[in-house]
Design a protein around this nucleic acid. Structure first.
Lengths: 225, 225
DNA sequence: ATTATTTTGTGATTTGCATCACATTGCATA
DNA sequence: TATGCAATGTGATGCAAATCACAAAATAAT
């Protein structure tokens, strides 16, 4: 457990700003914690007075839906989490679970707010990030509800490849059940679509190892049925 | 066309703060415009350097989905619109269309930003609002994708009654096609569900006039299938 | 008033996908 | 190495809701 925030490999501008501007406050008031794959970082329904900064690793945001768990998205460090909670009623509105081993900073709200008030650039960036999230939510929701399973699965594969792993081949970080909750289908359908894509030569599946062979096709499937 | 912002019936705290704190700047820099029912207030894809404040009336936020228009939600004055656009790349990411006659203030981004920078309380409130929106999006999306049509329709009726019109009877502001895009179904299904609800004595439909007779049932339908 | 044109109601048919029901594989822990 | 549990593959069946196809109202336009 280290406490020196200067050493954080922050490549988020907001995070850097935060650290540079307020190192003293932060180093006094934050914790760097390590979580193992599968651990709960934020638990829906619990009281919390911390902003969470995901420093390294992957995590999933999920919440209890009307009938089953809903995975909102897979996120990659560095990002802030739990802002809405912190600024709201301090009750976590969603859970965050580590998908790989992760390092996390818990920053006390009070401190965070102070910094926000003192640092114009930082608060502007936070607003920007929140705006981006809102738009992303709209789009995501429109896609999920309108597209067929194949389209949504194609989207997820493309997103993982292009946004998360920055490579055509990667190790699938989620189980098929998780994927099902992410694209809102059944586990069985996820399985079927994956084997379909494999048989059609669009991807190569080898256990958890995924390789995208034909990105063009995936994009077509994403657009059409 | 009036320009005196002091006269706005702002009951949003953020809006009041904005007006009180920065009346001079604002009255120099904003316009109050009237739109008629059906008019486009914000057009997706267009360049814009204004934050839009919906002063009076109802409007719908909608965007082009992969296959058809998606209505995100019905909104009621007073609210800010287009924040994400304004802070982002200045290209509107969604459309806003007047559902009743509305009054709108266009506030120049520059001015808005200045005020945001000068007014701590105001910027804090904006952050709060953005956070709320994000959470609301998560919930909404989880509901839409998991619930059956009857459940979603029940939700919409309850929301209109409780959040928008604050009454058990109201005039449905959206067409069935709009409702279909809102809950992501077909127009025909909306029609069928409405007549079902009517036949079951849960609501009374009389053209566009809706009366909720049995709120308990609606809530049950919203929760179960 | 009389046409258009958009909205709505309702049946018949089709279909994507959930669900059920197991077999199988992989992985962990004794 | 065996044993147990979780994650997967795959068929058969059922169902919610999309789609198609009109008729009937209701609004708008002439």
């Amino acid at each position: 457990m280290e406490r020196n925030c200067k050493t954080c490999p922050f490549n988020s501008k907001a995070a850097t700003t935060l650290c540079d501007a307020s190192f003293d406050q932060l180093s006094e008031n934050h914790l760097v914690l390590k979580f193992k794959k599968g651990d709960t970082v934020i638990k829906q329904g619990m009281y919390s007075t911390n902003v969470v900064f995901l420093r390294t690793g992957l995590a999933k945001i999920h919440l209890t839906g009307p009938y089953h768990e809903q995975i909102v998205k897979l996120i990659k460090a560095p990002t802030y989490l739990g802002l809405p909670t912190t600024f709201g009623d301090k009750i976590n509105q969603y859970s965050v679970t580590a998908v790989s081993d992760v390092e996390v900073c818990f920053i006390d709200v009070q401190v965070f707010q102070t910094i926000l008030n003192e640092n114009r650039e930082f608060s502007h960036e936070i607003i920007l990030e929140l705006c981006r999230n809102e738009l992303e939510s709209f789009r995501r929701c429109a896609n999920r509800t309108q597209k067929l399973i194949r389209g949504n699965m194609a989207d997820v594969l493309l997103e993982f490849s292009e946004k998360i792993f920055l490579s055509d081949s990667f190790t699938m970080p989620l189980s098929q059940s998780d994927l099902a909750n992410l694209v809102d289908t059944s586990r069985e359908s996820v399985s079927r679509v994956m084997t379909e894509f494999d048989k059609d030569g669009i991807i190569k599946v080898n256990g958890k190892q995924i390789q995208i062979l034909n990105k063009k096709s995936l994009k077509l499937i994403s657009q059409n049925g």
